[in-house]
């Protein structure tokens, strides 16, 4: 019962759950914590790809649950951080092939050996979601500042409150320019609607796409804005009081000069 089991969820697909899980996992490993990430998206696995570990999968989650191998055999150690492991999902099975009880047992087992068990939840609120949250003690909710992800996030909050409690919110892909023009919901709008604690804000960043291309998440990129946001979020998960800057598009004088002369 040593570690913390945190599920990363969103309701809506495509808002950045897997990317967030990869960045938080790597970020916590950078801080010398022992971390295991579970890809809970059975049938549509992607965490391996985002992490750049896709070529090293031998066994997966379902093999472990069915007793075909030991947990240790299925874990892929990250070469960048040996204290970080991935338990990949099966690509051929279905969400219904594993039960919440089995996930709870597996998570409990991993918590004994790791400081953090991060569970990447699939989109939706069906069995895959129930499995992913079954063993978690905490939840992180990802949304983007758009109407449908926020609506779905609200639904997920209602479901999480029945089991884990209030999730902590990450607002992903915030575009400061659009916020400034009031074309996008800002931080306080989203918090007023969802009424859960804020864990962090990740700005929209092309680097995330580039990071995905090469399997090297942005948290490792010292120059990336979103990478910096993830590093701050990691500090907050570790209990440090790091302020959350409001992304309202009010650029400083120097940046404005830069924009004027160099167009960036």
């Amino acid at each position: 019962m040593g570690g913390r089991a945190i599920v990363v969820t969103s309701g809506k697909g495509g808002v950045g759950k897997t990317t967030a899980t990869a960045n938080l996992g790597l970020g916590l490993a950078r801080e010398d914590r022992k971390v295991v990430m579970i890809d809970g998206d059975i049938g549509l696995r992607n965490l391996d790809l985002i992490m750049g570990l896709e070529n090293r999968i031998v066994y997966h989650l379902l093999d472990v649950v069915r007793g075909r191998c030991q947990v240790r055999q299925a874990l892929i150690k990250d070469k960048r951080f040996p204290n970080l492991s991935l338990l990949p999902a099966s690509q051929v099975d279905q969400k219904e092939d594993i039960s919440p009880e089995q996930m709870r047992d597996l998570t409990a087992q991993l918590k004994e050996d790791f400081d953090f068990v991060l569970i990447d939840c699939p989109a939706g609120i069906e069995q895959g979601f129930r499995n992913a949250i079954a063993g978690a003690n905490e939840a992180i909710l990802i949304t983007t500042p758009e109407v449908s992800p926020v609506r779905d996030a609200d639904r997920v909050i209602g479901l999480l409150q029945q089991s884990i409690g209030d999730p902590r919110l990450i607002i992903n892909r915030m575009n400061p320019e659009m916020v400034k023009k009031e074309q996008m919901l800002n931080q306080s709008d989203v918090l007023e609607i969802l009424a859960v604690p804020l864990l962090g804000i990740v700005p929209e960043d092309e680097e995330v796409v580039i990071a995905g291309n090469s399997g090297a998440p942005v948290v490792l990129n010292e120059r990336s804005r979103s990478g910096q946001a993830y590093r701050r979020i990691v500090q907050r998960i570790l209990g440090e009081d790091v302020p959350i800057p409001e992304l309202n598009g009010n650029v400083g004088f120097i940046q404005r000069l830069g924009k004027l002369f160099f167009g960036r």
Binding site: E146, V147, V150, R151, D154, R155, G158, M178, V179, K181, E182, Q183, M184, L185, N186, D189, E192, I193
Partner: peptide, 20 residues
């Protein structure tokens, strides 16, 4: 005048009352 975020917020608040 300002952008469409006010509309987004209002529509969300209405739909969420029913959802909840």
């Amino acid at each position: 005048a300002k952008g469409s975020k006010g509309e987004a917020k209002n529509r969300l608040q209405v739909v969420l009352v029913y959802d909840r």
